[in-house]
Each structure stands twice: as structure tokens, then as C-alpha cells.
């Protein structure tokens, strides 16, 4: 409705037009502007690709690291659950005594399961994993002791309970030494949390850079269409109306950059997949690399669209306002 002239209708606010039609027209005009902005990107493919590329890569990097750390964490979780106590038996232990001990331990209420690894078997496994192979067969005698792997029940996996159990096991006659290695687990957790914090910091900086880059791209866009903006203001366009195509441009940058990032992460993880599998197979049996699901796609797209919109929003508010007809 006109401010100056009572009763003069302005455009779509005419009373002749129904509610439904008005909403419909609102959407039609938005879709038209969105497609128009996409067309603008298409008309300068090289420049658009570069902006999208910067945005995509800036999201790819932290996303990949984030997914790797996330997975390392879930592996570490597995380890904590199955925390084992390794008992090294005295060198002079007879195999008869050893198997007796295994049977006895199997009856303890604190213990879930017991695995006996005789020295000879241990050597073969070591030969395979270490790659030393034939070199070990030149040894006069097997340097390894017999080993019993003790897996506590779930109530006894917590560090203090496991320590009590370890003390009890250490008092067994044939046990040379028992080892419950929690220290390195704690170190791993410490390392992972530092890595995570570092990733957050790097991501934050990269995102900031993306906002600035998009803001600058949109600024150049605005300046190159200065004359058009002037004319639009002269014939009564609101700032919001002038902002819209630029906001849509930001949104498209975000969407396309996000898609690119997702594909790049997929590609990277697939490429690293072989070595990750080999690594994880040694530690956890049913391990799947997570992070490539629909949720992560939505999060990445959402994030990059948000960055695109943020960059263009800052730019339009700053620059469209300063273009005034004189």
C-alpha cells in the first residue's frame, strides 16, 4: 500500500489478488531469482568454479581430518571395552602347569575369558607380523615366554577394578609379570582430544577465510552491476529486493562448494581406504569407516550454504547501501 496516496495499491498487494495467489507469486518470484543467479554463475564458469573450488577445499580439509579422528576415537573406545591383561609366565613353567593355570583362571568370577599363547606360537605370529621372517630362525632358542591373555568381565574393565585384578594375578606362582597397559590408552585419548581441538581451530580459520572470499566475490559482483542497482533504486526497488539475487548467488556457491567437498572427502577416504583397512584389521574386527552417511552430507551442505549466505549477507549489507542515485 502506498505511503503517500491512501487507497493507491502497489503491485501484488492489490486487494483483487487472493491470499493463495499472493503466496504462489512470492514463491514463483523467488524461484525465478534463484535460477537467475544460477544462470549468472553459469555465464562466468571459470570465476565461479574458482570460488566454488576454494570453498569446497576449505571444507574438505577439516571434514576429512574430523572423520579420521572420529573413527580413531571409536577404535579407541573398542580397546577400552576389551582391555586385556597380559600375563607373561616364568621361563621354567611347564606346559602342564600353564594349562592348569588357564583352567583355574577360567573359573574366576572376575574373568570373562582366557587365551593361552604358548611361546612357540607366539614366535610364529611375531615372525609374520614383524617381517623379520627367516632372521628369527637363526636364534638358538625361543626368546619369548608363554603368554596368557586375560579378558576381564565388563564390570572389571574400569581402570581401578582392573588394577585389583592385576594385583591378584601377579600373586600367582607361575606369573612372572602381568601387564595392564592403560597409560598408552590415556595418552592416545589425550592426543586425540588435542587433534580435535586443532582441527576445530583450523576449521574455524578456514571458514572465516571462506566467508571473506565469498564476501569479496559478491562485492565485485555488486560493483560490476552498479548501474543496474542505481536504476532499480530509482524505480523503487527495496534493498531487500536488490539483495536477493546476490544472496542466492551466495547460496549457490555454498551448495556447490559443499557438494564438491563431499565428493572430495569421499574420494580421499576411498583412496586412503586400503591402508586404513590394513591398519584397523589389526586392532578391531568389525570396523567400518564411518562418516560418509546422509547425516554428514546434510551437515556439510548445511555448513557450506551457511558460509555462502554469511559471506554474501555481510557484503550486500555493506555495499548495496552505499550505492545511491545522485
Amino acid at each position: 500500500m502506498s505511503i503517500l496516496f491512501k487507497g493507491r495499491s502497489q503491485g501484488a498487494h492489490s486487494s483483487k489478488i487472493g491470499m493463495f495467489q499472493r503466496i504462489n507469486m512470492f514463491f514463483v518470484s523467488h524461484v525465478r531469482q534463484a535460477l537467475g543467479s544460477l544462470g549468472e554463475l553459469w555465464r562466468a564458469p571459470l570465476a565461479s568454479m574458482m570460488t566454488i573450488g576454494v570453498l569446497g577445499l576449505s571444507i574438505t580439509l577439516p571434514s576429512t581430518f574430523y572423520i579420521l579422528v572420529k573413527n580413531a576415537e571409536s577404535i579407541a573406545e573398542n580397546w577400552q571395552q576389551a582391555s586385556e591383561i597380559t600375563l607373561f609366565l616364568r621361563k621354567d613353567t611347564q606346559s602342564k602347569d600353564a594349562s592348569q593355570l588357564v583352567t583355574r583362571l577360567g573359573l574366576w568370577s572376575e574373568i570373562d575369558s582366557v587365551t593361552y599363547i604358548p611361546a612357540a606360537e607366539g614366535l610364529i605370529e611375531f615372525q609374520q607380523q614383524s617381517g623379520l621372517g627367516e632372521a628369527l630362525s637363526y636364534l638358538d632358542e625361543n626368546p619369548l615366554p608363554d603368554v596368557i591373555l586375560v579378558r576381564p568381565t565388563s564390570q572389571n574393565t574400569a581402570p581401578t577394578a582392573a588394577k585389583l585384578l592385576l594385583d591378584k594375578l601377579n600373586r600367582e606362582r607361575h606369573v612372572e609379570v602381568g601387564k595392564l597397559d592403560i597409560k598408552w590408552l590415556e595418552r592416545l585419548h589425550g592426543f586425540l582430544s588435542i587433534a580435535k581441538e586443532l582441527i576445530y581451530a583450523v576449521a574455524l580459520l578456514l571458514f572465516l577465510a571462506v566467508v571473506l572470499i565469498i564476501g569479496n566475490t559478491i562485492r565485485l559482483n555488486i560493483l560490476s552491476r552498479r548501474d543496474e542497482i542505481l536504476v532499480m533504486k530509482l524505480v523503487g526497488a527495496t534493498d531487500a529486493f536488490i539483495h536477493r539475487p546476490f544472496m542466492y548467488t551466495g547460496m549457490w556457491y555454498g551448495l556447490l562448494g559443499g557438494l564438491m567437498a563431499w565428493f572430495a572427502v569421499l574420494l580421499l577416504l576411498w583412496w586412503m581406504g586400503g591402508s586404513i583397512d590394513a591398519l584397523t584389521a589389526q586392532y578391531a574386527k568389525n570396523f567400518d569407516l564411518t562418516g560418509l552417511d546422509v547425516t554428514s552430507l546434510i551437515v556439510m551442505l548445511g555448513l557450506s550454504i551457511f558460509l555462502g549466505l554469511a559471506g554474501s549477507m555481510i557484503s550486500v549489507h555493506k555495499h548495496v547501501r552505499s550505492i545511491e542515485p545522485k
Binding site: I3, R8, L234, V235, G236, D239
Partner: peptide
């Protein structure tokens, strides 16, 4: 903010 709406009433 109202200037745009004023200009819609004026043909220039």
C-alpha cells in the same frame, strides 16, 4: 527504508 515505496508513486 520507506524511500523505495515513495518512488513507486513517482514516475521519473
Amino acid at each position: 527504508r520507506q524511500i523505495a515505496f515513495i518512488r513507486r508513486d513517482i514516475g521519473m
